[in-house]
C-alpha cells in the first residue's frame, strides 16, 4: 500500500463526489481537522479517518452538502486503508516518548 498524504487524499476524493469548489472543500476539511485538534500536515491515516467520520459531516452540511454521512463513512474507510508515511518527530510523539 502506498504512503499518501491523508489530507490531500480526502480533498481529492471529496472533489470527485461533491459539487463544491476546491477552496470550499479544502476549507471544510481544514475546519474539521482543526476542531479535532489536528493540522493538515502530519495527520495520520487512522486519525484522519476519525476526523472524516465524526467531524467532517458537520462541516460539509454547513457548506450546503445534503446528507454527507454515507459519503463520509465510505471516505473514512478508504483513508484508514492508506499506509502511514514515516512522519517526522511530531511534538505529541516526542512527549509520548519522554514518559519512557
Amino acid at each position: 500500500m502506498e504512503a499518501a498524504d491523508p489530507f490531500q487524499f480526502v480533498c481529492d476524493q471529496l472533489g470527485e463526489h461533491v459539487k463544491l469548489d476546491r477552496l470550499a472543500l479544502r476549507g471544510a476539511v481544514r475546519l474539521a481537522l482543526k476542531s479535532a485538534g489536528f493540522e493538515p500536515r502530519g495527520v495520520r491515516p487512522s486519525e484522519m479517518a476519525v476526523v472524516v467520520s465524526r467531524m467532517l459531516p458537520k462541516e460539509l452540511t454547513a457548506c450546503g452538502v445534503v446528507d454527507p454521512g454515507p459519503l463520509c463513512t465510505r471516505l473514512a474507510a478508504a483513508v484508514s486503508g492508506l499506509s502511514a508515511s514515516a512522519a517526522p518527530d511530531a511534538p505529541d510523539a516526542v512527549f509520548r516518548r519522554l514518559g519512557g
Binding site: S35, A36, G37, F38, E39, E47, V50, V51, R54, P91, D92, F95, R96, L98, G99
Partner: peptide
C-alpha cells in the same frame, strides 16, 4: 495542549501525554 485536548475528547491520544504537555 489546547490541540491535544481536542484529540483527547475523540479518544485519539493518551490522557497522560496530554497531561505531560
Amino acid at each position: 495542549h489546547a490541540r491535544l485536548r481536542k484529540q483527547l475528547r475523540l479518544g485519539l491520544i493518551d490522557a497522560v501525554v496530554v497531561n505531560r504537555v
